[in-house]
Design a protein around this nucleic acid. Structure first.
Length: 450
RNA sequence: GUGGUCCUAGCUCAGUUGGUUAGAGCGUCGGAUUGUGGUUCCGAAGGUCGCGGGUUCGAGCCCCGUGUUCCACCCCA
């Protein structure tokens, strides 16, 4: 017999774990709806043509590809069989979704006749990445995306920040929102005369936190960025002070860059909005925040948990033309993605789950024979019609066994039914916590259990 | 993709310089208790020591390969 196992980076979830996970999903959903977002779903598999080339070379490598059906090797030449880059497109035309944003862009383009803009959607589904699993990193994990497309207004950015504030307040996780702007990063590249190196620059300074200033400079240098440019970059990397102070300093440095100044003014607007509505969560302008995905064009966000060592638990930003690659130009979008599994890890480490779980059985019927089982059925039906979670132990086995079942499932009430109870038209109701029990009628039962 | 690390019962882990028949706790099942769980006591089941090869009279222990776990890099939620 083989030992069963699951693929690396995937997990099973027990009933208790699912109760905890649903607490997260339900909280997030509730907040999303509060802001007027509507749920959609898209398929787990997409055409590879939809996915490839949207996440950079690295992303393409991390896509799970699905083998074609049938004799997929038929008619292939020697040459094609030997090169995996030539072979892959021949034998696989579908892949598992890598995130929810690109499938959403596809959805918008394909269903534009049924969508009125601005379109506010949320989507909670698993995504798959052929990454090496490690702490906070899985091959299958859930993202909870909220996006607004078809509106350039920075009020959307504000609402996303409010949603973040709201969700993590409800989950009782202390966070900091880091914010940056792609146009400011572009402005910086422009000022130091390295516009073509914008990706290398952002990737390098994204690591400031992790590897420090010196190593970042080394990496910049190894990417072929001149010593002069690196030296021009230093004041920006070392920016300190409040957000307002940082913006003042940036305004000086970027005064000759039109795009940079545009970014500054957008961020100022967003900060202004946040003050207007009193967002309490700390928000920090962090120029080292770059985010890998290259489709962002405006504000970019990232959320870090303050009390736990963990990668970002939420992230997103504005992308001006995501639908362009699918043939719909001029639709701007902004969105964020809550990493449900990392949030789950944070909650587990801090043990922040609420005491009560609504998914529990309230009362278990325990019986001694076939007649008693039948007697219980109408009671069960009535309790359920009253919205009380009730179940019956389906076999009249030894009482100890049935009681243990109730105990393990932490069911607070047990109704014991034998001949005495049946003859009286009642049940013996036992409170499992106190151990007290009494003979009760149906009406009394509901009063006690509810 | 690169480097390191872990793996012994369902779970958490002991296991001496390589030496007879591999242990414990928890959990499971049965009994003490024919209509009463969470406490207690007694008993039982449960293992190809990740897998494959090698060294040896003899391998859970040493060597090689491989898978997996966790960690770091790359990248990312």
């Amino acid at each position: 017999m083989q030992k069963p196992s699951i693929p690396k980076g995937t997990r099973d979830f027990t009933p208790q774990e699912m109760a905890n996970r649903n607490y997260i999903f339900d909280t997030i959903k509730e907040v999303f709806r509060l802001y007027g977002f509507q749920q959609i779903e898209t398929p787990a598999i997409e055409n590879l043509s939809t996915l490839m080339g949207k996440y950079g070379d690295e992303g393409d490598k991390l896509l799970f590809k699905v083998l074609n059906s049938g004799d997929f090797l038929a008619g292939l030449s020697e040459d094609e069989l030997r090169s995996s880059t030539k072979l892959t497109p021949k034998i696989s035309e579908k892949g598992l979704r890598y995130d929810l944003t690109v499938p959403f862009a596809r959805f918008v383009v394909q269903n534009r006749d049924q969508i009125s803009f601005p379109f506010k959607r949320f989507q909670i589904q698993p995504v798959w990445r052929a990454d090496r699993p490690q702490r906070g990193r899985y091959r299958e994990f859930y993202q909870c995306d909220v996006d607004v497309v078809g509106s350039d207004s920075l009020l959307n950015e504000l609402e996303l920040i409010q949603i973040v504030d709201d969700v993590f307040r409800r989950l009782k996780i202390n966070i900091i929102v880091k914010i940056n702007h792609r146009k400011i990063l572009s402005g910086i590249a422009e000022i130091i005369g390295q516009t073509d190196k914008i990706t290398d620059i952002t990737v390098a300074i994204d690591k400031m936190d992790k590897i420090g200033l010196e190593k970042v400079n080394e990496e910049l240098s190894s990417k072929g960025i001149s010593a002069e440019a690196i030296s021009n970059l230093q004041p920006i990397l070392k920016l300190t002070g409040t957000n307002d102070q940082k913006i003042e300093q940036l305004r000086l440095v970027l005064s000759d860059s039109e795009i940079g100044m545009k970014g500054i003014s957008e961020l100022e607007t967003i900060f202004g909005f946040c003050k207007t509505v009193d967002v309490e969560t700390p928000i920090e302008l962090d120029l080292t925040l770059a985010r890998g995905l290259n489709y962002y064009t405006g504000a970019i966000f990232e959320v870090k948990a303050l009390d736990v060592e963990m990668g970002s638990i939420t992230g997103g930003g504005r992308y001006d033309n995501l639908t362009g690659v699918f043939g719909l130009e001029g639709v701007s979008g902004v969105g964020i993605s809550f990493g449900a599994d990392r949030i789950y890890d944070v909650l587990n480490q801090l043990n922040l789950y609420p005491e009560t779980s609504a998914e529990q059985t309230r009362i278990l019927f325990v019986s001694f024979g076939e007649k008693e089982l039948i007697y219980c059925l109408s009671w069960l039906k009535y309790l359920r019609s009253e919205g009380i979670n009730a179940e019956i132990y389906p076999e009249p086995v030894k009482m100890k066994k049935q009681m243990t079942y109730a105990d393990n499932k932490q069911i607070p009430f047990v109704a014991i039914v034998g001949e005495i109870e049946m003859n009286a038209g009642k049940v013996m109701l036992k409170n499992m916590e106190t151990g007290n029990q009494s003979l009760v009628s149906l009406v009394e039962l509901i009063e006690n259990v509810r």
